[in-house]
Design a binder for these strands. Structure first.
Lengths: 218, 218
DNA sequence: CCTACTTTTGACCAATTGATTAAATTGTTT
DNA sequence: AAACAATTTAATCAATTGGTCAAAAGTAGG
């Protein structure tokens, strides 16, 4: 009854056009556009160009379909952030620079991803569990993050700052402008092109700002 | 048919407990909790302890009820921000300090307000119009904001920075940590008390950071 | 008490929701 | 082609949605 395997197209090595994939792509679009509560299974079916029943055939329920998308989003962000935090370099400048580049890259690649995650966790707090078990599986202890950064901050003659403050500052400066885009464009960048230019240079500007905060020369 | 005036309790000068107010308060709670799409008229009625039909009697539709709440939120934020930006002082330090204090105060008083506004505008972009007409009514031209700050930045020996960048940096540093609270508490502040302490000192920290960015002494 | 009004209620509505089911179609294997 | 399994479809479900309406209840003035 619930065969979730598809044998069709599998021999066709190239295109990744299995029904599951088509559905997931369509669902992603709709969930991003409308959020979980605003999304409709029918709209996803239309977007995928198939019958609504197929969504249930392949993914059982709206909730399970959403969870697949949500997990994929978390997996898009977390590994890159984690790799950056625990990178080899003991030079705090390198870590700061990498963190900034990582977040600005993520924002540029998937402008919606942080807002989406924060929104859905805010609306349905039980979903924080998914993130929890994800970093559990990854075997990362949150306190290690702080310690890892903190150790690197204790070297040289750097303006003393709490590691958590440093991290949240970086993420704030990189991520928030994109989250606030609609309002920011109303008040500060009436021209869309101007805003895009601003976001393109964001990485450098944040790095300079962080260097000033840490009182190190870039 | 559509009398929206209430004569009852009006003589009773003290308590602001008119049906309209009770409904608005209940609606606000529910809309903040669930968002527009997730909110249910029945839940608002339950929260207000009255019949669902009364909501339509006093506010006609879910949309109109929401708009009242939404406008109130905008009015809670905008006047204070606007007053801060156009304040008399020509000393950039005062303006920066006031901006930081204003935003951190708003965040502390209504932790949900910025996320809510950004969320609802993101989900229903047509609502940006409400914000537009609001600042129109207020008679404020966005470019004046930039100019006002920019002029103050041109004085003294201050590290050159674009006015819009300065503003977005301040807002990012003040607002984002609260928006990211659920995730931030998972990774960086496992103890809720610790996070609250952090947020209490946020104003000072952001001010110091901004002084470093501007290369002025606090 | 009677009348005119506002406010409140519960029954009800059409439309939509996520989900199920059985039948129809397609694909594969022999 | 027959038989079997996998996929797709359309019809349909019960539950829920925002919204309406007429009747009931409350209120005030005379």
């Amino acid at each position: 009854m619930n065969r979730l395997k598809s044998s069709k197209y599998v021999d066709d090595a190239e295109e990744e056009r299995s029904p599951e994939t088509v559905i997931l792509e369509a669902a992603k679009k709709v969930f991003i556009r409308k959020g979980y509560d605003g999304a409709r299974m029918q709209e996803i079916a239309d977007e995928a160009g198939m019958n609504k029943s197929l969504l249930h055939y392949y993914f059982r329920s709206k909730e399970q379909l959403f969870n697949k998308i949500f997990r994929e989003m978390l997996m898009f962000v977390w590994p890159k952030v984690e790799a950056t935090i625990f990178r080899e370099s003991s030079d705090i400048r390198h870590v700061v620079k990498s963190l900034i580049q990582t977040y600005t890259l993520l924002v540029r690649q998937r402008p919606y991803v942080f807002m989406f995650i924060l929104e859905e966790i805010g609306r349905h707090p039980e979903r924080i569990q998914q993130l929890k078990s994800l970093i559990d599986d990854w075997g990362v202890k949150p306190q290690h993050i702080i310690k890892s950064i903190d150790k690197k901050l204790k070297t040289k003659h750097i303006h003393h700052i709490d590691a958590r403050e440093l991290i949240i500052n970086i993420i704030s400066l990189c991520v928030f402008p994109m989250i606030a885009q609609p309002v920011a464009m109303l008040f500060l960048w009436p021209d869309r092109k101007e805003f895009e230019k601003f976001m393109q240079r964001r990485s450098e500007h944040v790095y300079m700002a962080m260097c000033n905060i840490l009182k190190i020369k870039s």
